[in-house]
Amino acid sequence: MSTSAASPAPVPGPGEPRDSGPARSVSENGTTPGGGPEPTVPPGPVATSEAASTSGTGPETAVRVRGLHKSYGELEVLRGIDLDVVAGEVVCLIGPSGSGKSTLLRCLNLLETPQAGSISVDGFTVTDPDLDVDAMRRRVGMVFQQFNLFPHLSVLENCTMAQVKVLKRPAAEARRVALANLRRVGLSEKADQRPAQLSGGQQQRVAIARALSVDPDLMLFDEPTSALDPETVGDVLSIMRGLAADGMTMLVVTHEMSFARDVADRVVFMDGGVVVEQGPAREVIGSPQHQRTRTFLSRVLNPTTGAAPEAPDTSEAPTTPA
């Protein structure tokens, strides 16, 4: 585990202005207390964002999810998710595999179509059937676990293709933007190579540069370091720290707990398709309130100790913040 000293990003502690998340909420079924299906609220200031209004970036809602349900046939993957992300916030989604974190992320830019609930992202009502999907996706960058670079294009072309074909930028400008973003991820000298010539970590950094090249307002990271060799994970994470420090709104599905603790403003723990617990990163990871969170974290943080130390049997009892 790295320490926060390694992070160049300003890491606000609890109560500091950057800590813009809603008051910490914990509930047994994962929904906010009393939170049934709520009507779609137009994007704008939300009730819980009074803390965000002090952050200087304004109380702009980047992501607002209400009562989100998604199932594949009989398998219910998301069972009523509520989530708010304020512009400039870094939110890490953690939880065991199969908990629905990636599905939630993929619903946000409609790579998966949810069955029920409402999503608004960056001012777009994603769940509106009349949505201009492509216009929404232009504002939302996505980084995949498997990089998904285009193998038949050079590194530079990977970063210019969408600019030219989608944003209709002139080739010279697209090239300039692409090179600037490649410089940002430290790979401008690889511009003319093919993705296959790069290591996994380098490919993922190119994927970040590619996503940044269309100037998104929001970045979604779907387990960006899970497919990497351990020695290249750090490079990718430090790029992401830099992005967070520059004020990019980020939603990160990750198993990197030290990254979540050091960089995230807020951590959302999901299990079984619901949000079990969320709050400031250090609090959720440092002193989780819910038994399921404790079990998960002890497995992730102490993988060698085998079974999680069993706390008193409170898992089925309603848990309230201490």
């Binding site: 998904n148 670079l149 293709m161 969408a162 074909k165 994927a207 269309v214």
Partner: peptide, 26 residues
């Protein structure tokens, strides 16, 4: 791989654009 199409769509390409520039050449 389906991820190629998904990556192209995530960059804001339309279905046709993603097929023509990313999937069909491969």
């Amino acid at each position: 791989p389906p991820g190629q199409y998904e990556a192209a769509r995530s960059l804001g390409m339309s279905h046709t654009r993603a097929m023509v520039t990313i999937v069909i050449p491969q």
